[in-house]
Design a protein around this nucleic acid. Structure first.
Length: 85
DNA sequence: GCGCTGACTGTCA
DNA sequence: ATGACAGCCAGCG
């Protein structure tokens, strides 16, 4: 695992309840503002149970995806935490 | 080292 | 506003 992936996990893990960061923001905080795609790649295949990946969304305001119950579960979790769009 | 893939993003028609 | 295109990056075979 490279340092970048580790950073990504750390950033996502630190997202407060009720808040959501875009892949771009996460990538930026991880050290690579242009690695939004890489972030998505890490989340998509190497999911970490300690990370609330459901708090990571697209810059469009769309949810993107979820590998742990589907986009539906993700939406439900966000709404449950207070993120209502 | 090369090429493919993907939960992305920004720009143009 | 919507769809198509190109650019970028890390992980894997």
């Amino acid at each position: 695992m490279s340092e970048f992936s580790n950073k990504v996990r750390c950033v996502v893990k630190n997202i407060p309840k009720g808040e959501v960061l875009t892949y771009k923001e996460v990538a930026k905080k991880s050290g690579n503002p242009k690695a939004a795609r890489a972030v998505a790649q890490i989340m998509a295949k190497n999911f970490d149970p300690t990370i609330p990946c459901h708090r990571v969304i697209r810059s469009d305001g769309k949810l993107g995806g979820y590998n742990r119950g589907g986009i539906v579960a993700k939406r439900a979790i966000l709404q449950g935490e207070g993120y209502c769009k």
